[in-house]
Write a protein that binds this DNA or RNA. Structure first.
Lengths: 84, 84
DNA sequence: TAAAAATACTCCATAGGTATTTTAT
DNA sequence: ATAAAATACCTATGGAGTATTTTTA
């Protein structure tokens, strides 16, 4: 049985990668064609579900945590293979 | 930009793999702890979104189509890498 | 004081359940 | 006659939008 998707959905990965790329929630939200609050909530939810902080928010500056950086690498590697 | 998840979610992959493994909707639904109609609908939706038939339903016998077989192989390879 | 993310609220799309029907053997 | 999937109908969860607040440089 596959377990990951009981918690995390594609949406989360997609959103995460957009924020990780932009390091800016508003810009990422525009790129994703969703609202900034919606994006913030989903990232927060993702962090809660994983029990891991993915971003450090020092106002006017968003950074990836170590865990976030690791996840970004992993996803960049494997995520795209599922797009045929 | 990642595109796949605008249509398909983890849920679909998970459900698909369960049916592909069991070749039986009811058994697969039990394994997934969801109802048989819910599973049938999600698989149907997945096929519609992909525009590809994944299973042949001859009553009392479910078979993977060629496309389904291919997808099963691909997912078996890549899907699990996303589980840390 | 302004730029950015978080919170409050609301709404609605849809995943999923129960009951039933259809289908083929 | 029965086993299995599909369909009909309904409900409730949660994703997402707008408006606003909080935060810090």
């Amino acid at each position: 049985m596959i377990t990951i998707s009981n918690q995390i959905e594609f949406r989360h990965f997609k959103y995460f990668l957009a924020v990780a790329e932009n390091l800016h929630f508003r810009k990422a939200s525009e790129q994703l064609y969703i609202s900034q609050p919606g994006l913030s909530r989903q990232i927060k939810q993702m962090e809660e579900k994983l029990g891991i902080k993915l971003f450090e928010r020092h106002n006017r500056k968003v950074e990836l945590t170590k865990a976030g950086l690791y996840l970004q690498k992993e996803l960049s590697l494997h995520f795209k293979k599922l797009n045929n």
